[in-house]
Computed example of a mutant assay.
Amino acid sequence: MSVEGKEPDPRFTLANERTFLTWLSTSLALSAGGVAMAALPRDVFVPWVRTSLAVVLVLLSALAAVLSYPRWRNVQRALRHEQPLPPLALAPLFGYGVAAVAVLALILILLAG
């Protein structure tokens, strides 16, 4: 990123950096959840459902990792030019995606018990 615009307050830059790192941590957690779901024994859940849940979690992980840097860059640019921060357009996708996986896993746990 080129250094154009006014230098923002360091607290805002550091907060933006922490948010970027949090997106990466979230990506790692989603990836670990997907791998854990895929590694479950065959008798836990229906195999295609287990695989589907794992794939959704890993896809959300990849999406979070890929989009974290452009998000950081766009926020930093807005801070430097004293513009409104860009909206987080993917928040509903992540929120609903993780919620759907959790609800489906809960239903499968209850049915297996």
Rank of each mutant, 00 (worst) to 15 (best):
R11Q: 04
P70V: 11
S52Y: 04
F12P: 03
P92G: 05
L60V: 11
P10M: 10
L28F: 05
G97S: 05
R71S: 08
L93Q: 03
L111E: 05
I107R: 07
D9A: 13
R11G: 01
G97Y: 06
V35H: 02
V58C: 14
A91Q: 07
R42E: 09
P84E: 13
L28Y: 06
S27L: 03
S52K: 00
L57N: 04
V58A: 09
S31Q: 08
T19V: 10
A91W: 06
L85G: 07
I107A: 14
L28V: 12
V75N: 01
H81S: 15
A64R: 02
A36G: 12
E17F: 15
L53Q: 03
P87V: 12
D9N: 15
R18D: 11
W72I: 00
F20K: 04
I107H: 07
M1H: 12
L85V: 11
L57P: 01
T22P: 00
V58S: 02
T13G: 00
W48M: 11
E7P: 00
A99L: 12
G97V: 08
I109K: 05
V66P: 02
L88M: 09
L40N: 00
A78R: 03
S2G: 11
V44M: 05
A89E: 00
T26R: 07
L106T: 15
A64T: 09
T13Q: 04
D43P: 01
T51I: 15
L28R: 05
G97L: 03
T22S: 14
A78E: 01
A65Q: 00
L67A: 07
L14W: 06
R77S: 08
T26H: 09
F94N: 02
V101P: 00
V75D: 00
L93V: 14
L79S: 09
D9Q: 06
G33W: 04
P41F: 08
P86H: 10
V56D: 02
S31A: 13
T22E: 13
A112C: 07
F12N: 00
V58H: 00
V98R: 00
F12I: 10
A32G: 08
V55A: 15
S2I: 08
I109S: 03
L88E: 05
Q76L: 08
V98E: 01
V35N: 05
V46Q: 15
P87K: 08
L88R: 05
F20Y: 15
L67F: 11
L57K: 03
S52P: 01
V55R: 05
L63H: 12
P84M: 10
Q83I: 07
A91N: 01
D43Y: 13
R73Q: 10
E82N: 11
M37Y: 04
L108I: 10
F45H: 07
E82M: 07
P84V: 10
R42C: 04
S52L: 14
L21W: 11
L106W: 13
P92L: 08
